[in-house]
Design a protein around this nucleic acid. Structure first.
Length: 500
RNA sequence: GCCAAGGUGGCAGAGUUCGGUCAUACGCAUCUCCCUGCAGAGGAGAACCACGCCGGUUCAAAUCCGGCCCUUGGCUCCA
C-alpha cells in the first residue's frame, strides 16, 4: 500500500498519486514576516518537511516551494519601531532573515525556492490583468476585485456559501459588487486605520503607509491571496500536486487561491490540499515562564532541535496538538530513549568481530517488524507518532538483545548479532535520521569533541575518588557536570558522559 | 448566526476511511524485581483506568445513523 492522505478538497482519505510519475510539486503557505515565528508556525513547516522527506524516501523527486509574504499591513505597521526599520522593506528583511534562520535551526530540508511577494509584482499584475480579461475581476477606483459570482464552485474547499458570509463593512461594499468579492489589488498605500490596528504600541512619528507599486490601475498594493496564486504558478506551473497550509487558512485564503488560479488557467490548481492542525496552549499550560519559549528561536535554544522535532512527532499533522511543559518533557524522554538505543546498537556494532556468527532471531524479527510498521504508519496519512513508536519498539529490542548477551556471556562481543545490530542501526539512521530529521549519531566533531575530552578528564578524577571511597566528592563532580548539561552514567565499561 | 475540525485512560496521543482481532498502541507518570555504593540508563513484570450525552441499527459499535451538549478554528489579508 502506498501513501494515502486526507484531502481537504474532498474531506476524505485518498491514495496519493502525483500527476507526473516520480515528481511531486509541493507548495507550502509559509509565513507573513511581520514578527518572530513561533512554535505554531513551525509546526506546519515541520510537517511539510516530514512530508518532503517521506516523499524522498518513497523515491519521488520533490519540488518544494515555500513562500515568504513580505508585503503586508502588519509589516508596514512596524516601520519606525526600531532603529533601521525605516521602510516596510527594512522590517520585512529583518524578519525574513529571522524566519529563514529558524528554519535552518529546525533542520528543515531546504525548499527549492522561497519566493517573496515583493519580487513577484510583475507576475501578480499580469495575473490580475488576465483575470480582468477573462471577466472574473473588475476594477473600482483603482482597486481590483475578484468576482466570486463569476466562478462556479466558489466555496468548494471550505463549504462556504457566498450568500451566507457575513456582510462586509459598508465602506468596502461600496467598491464591491458582492460582499464576498475580495481584493486582488488595493489602490494606494496602507490606510491609517489599519496601521493603528496592527501597531503593537504607539511609538509616535508619522504613520507609515507601506510600499506601493505602479500598475495599470495606478499606485497600489497586491491583495493577500493573489500572491500565492502568482508565485506558485511562476515556480511550479499551473497545477501542483500538494498544497499545504495551516487549517486556519482554509477560508478565505485557500478558497480564494483556488478561485483565482482556476479562473485564470481553467485547470485544477492543486490536487491535494493538506491542512495542519493548530498548536494549542491552554492558559494553565501557558505559564509565563513558558511564554518565553514560544518563539522558535527560544524553543530551539531551550530544548534543542531534536526535542522540538520529537515534540512535533508526538502528534499527526492534521489534528491539533497541545503544547505544555509536560509535552516537552515527554518529547525529551522519547528523544533520549531513541538516541540511547541507537547508540547502544551502534557501539555494540563497533565492538563486535565482523566474523562473529551469533544470531538473535528476536532481534531480526524486531528489525523487520519495525521497518514494516514504520512504513505502514507513514503511508497511513503520515502517522508520525505511530511511526516513532515503531522505532522505540526497535530500541527496546536492541536493548534487550544487548542486555541478554551481556548477562549471559559477561559482555562477550562475539555473542552479539552483528548483522542484526547493523540493520537496526541502518533502520534508525534511515527513518530516525533521514525521514524524521533527527540528529542520531551526529554529535561528534568540533566543540562537542573537545567538551567530551574535557569531561573525560573530570571523570578520571571522579573515578579516583570513587575508587578511594570518596563518594561525596565523586557525586559533587557528577552534579557539577550535570549543571553544565552533561549527564554522567556509570555503566559496565566505566562512566560515560552524555550531552543533554 | 453560518462553515469546518474535534470531544478516547492521571497526562499525552493512536485506533473511527473498510463495525468484531480494541478491556485498548507508542510514550510519560505509579509500583515491584534484576542490575547497582547511590543515582541514572537498561531489562522483566504489575497495577490502574477512557471511548462527551441520549436514542437507534446490529449477533456485535469508540467505529454506522439521528438528536443534543461542549471545545477549537474560520467568516476577507492569522500557520
Amino acid at each position: 500500500m502506498g501513501l494515502s492522505v486526507t484531502n481537504t478538497l474532498t474531506g476524505e482519505r485518498e491514495a496519493f498519486e502525483p500527476a507526473d510519475d516520480g515528481e511531486v510539486l509541493l507548495y507550502v503557505c509559509g509565513l507573513t514576516v511581520s514578527d518572530d515565528a513561533h512554535l505554531g508556525h513551525a509546526r506546519l513547516w515541520f510537517h511539510a518537511d516530514v512530508l518532503h522527506r517521506w516523499l524522498d524516501w518513497l523515491g519521488y523527486d520533490v519540488r518544494h516551494v515555500e513562500n515568504v509574504t513580505d508585503v503586508n499591513e502588519k509589516i508596514a505597521a512596524r516601520v519606525g519601531e526600531r532603529e533601521g526599520w525605516e521602510t516596510e522593506a527594512d522590517v520585512a528583511r529583518h524578519f525574513t532573515r529571522e524566519v529563514l534562520a529558524d528554519m535552518r535551526g529546525l533542520n528543515l530540508k531546504r525548499a527549492a525556492v522561497y519566493p517573496r511577494v515583493s519580487e513577484h509584482i510583475p507576475e501578480i499584475v499580469a495575473l490580475v490583468e488576465r483575470l480582468i480579461e477573462a471577466g472574473h475581476a473588475y476594477e473600482t477606483n483603482g482597486s481590483v476585485y475578484f468576482d466570486v459570482t463569476s466562478f462556479e464552485g466558489y466555496g468548494g474547499l471550505s463549504n462556504q456559501d457566498p450568500g451566507e458570509l457575513e456582510a462586509d463593512e459598508a465602506a468596502a461594499l461600496a467598491e464591491k459588487r458582492h460582499p464576498a468579492d475580495f481584493a486582488l489589488w488595493k489602490a494606494g498605500g496602507v490606510g491609517a486605520d489599519a496601521v493603528r490596528e496592527h501597531r503593537k504600541h504607539d511609538h509616535g512619528g508619522d504613520l507609515p503607509s507601506g510600499r506601493t507599486w505602479e500598475s495599470p490601475w495606478g499606485e497600489g498594493r497586491p491583495g493577500w491571496h493573489i500572491e500565492c496564486s502568482a508565485m506558485s504558478t511562476t515556480h511550479l506551473g499551473d497545477g501542483l500536486d500538494v498544497h499545504m497550509g495551516g487549517r486556519d487558512l482554509v477560508f478565505p485564503h485557500h478558497e480564494n487561491e483556488i478561485a483565482q488560479s482556476e479562473a485564470a488557467t481553467g485547470g485544477t490548481f492543486a490536487r491535494y490540499w493538506l491542512h495542519s492542525g493548530l498548536l494549542e496552549t491552554g492558559e494553565d499550560k501557558m505559564s509565563s515562564s513558558l511564554g518565553n519559549f514560544f518563539a522558535v528561536e527560544d524553543a530551539l535554544e531551550e530544548f534543542g532541535v531534536n526535542v522540538v522535532r520529537t515534540f512535533y512527532l508526538g502528534a499527526r499533522y492534521r489534528g491539533d496538538q497541545a503544547f505544555s511543559e509536560a509535552a516537552i518533557a515527554e518529547a525529551e524522554e522519547r528523544w533520549e530513549r531513541l538516541e540511547r538505543a541507537y547508540e547502544t546498537a551502534a557501539e555494540a556494532c563497533d565492538s563486535v568481530d565482523a566474523r562473529a556468527k551469533a544470531t538473535d532471531d528476536d532481534l531480526r524479527t524486531a528489525v523487520d517488524d519495525a521497518h514494516g510498521a514504520f512504513v505502514t504508519a507513514m503511508n497511513d496519512d503520515l502517522n508520525v507518532r505511530e511511526a516513532f513508536g515503531a522505532l522505540l519498539d526497535l530500541g527496546t529490542a536492541v536493548n534487550r538483545h544487548v542486555e541478554r548477551v551481556d548477562a549471559a556471556d559477561g559482555g562477550n562481543a562475539d555473542a552479539y548479532d552483528y548483522p542484526g545490530l547493523r540493520r537496526a542501526v541502518e533502520t534508525f539512521e534511515t527513518f530516525g535520521g533521514d525521514v524524521f530529521g533527527l540528529e542520531l549519531g551526529r554529535r561528534a566533531g568540533g566543540d562537542a569533541e573537545l567538551v567530551g575530552d574535557l569531561a573525560d578528564l573530570v571523570l578520571d578524577v571522579r573515578e579516583a575518588e570513587r575508587a578511594a571511597g570518596n563518594y561525596e566528592r565523586a557525586d559533587r563532580l557528577r552534579d557539577d557536570l550535570e549543571a553544565l548539561g552533561l549527564s554522567v552514567e556509570d555503566g559496565e565499561d566505566g562512566p560515560e558522559v552524555r550531552f543533554d
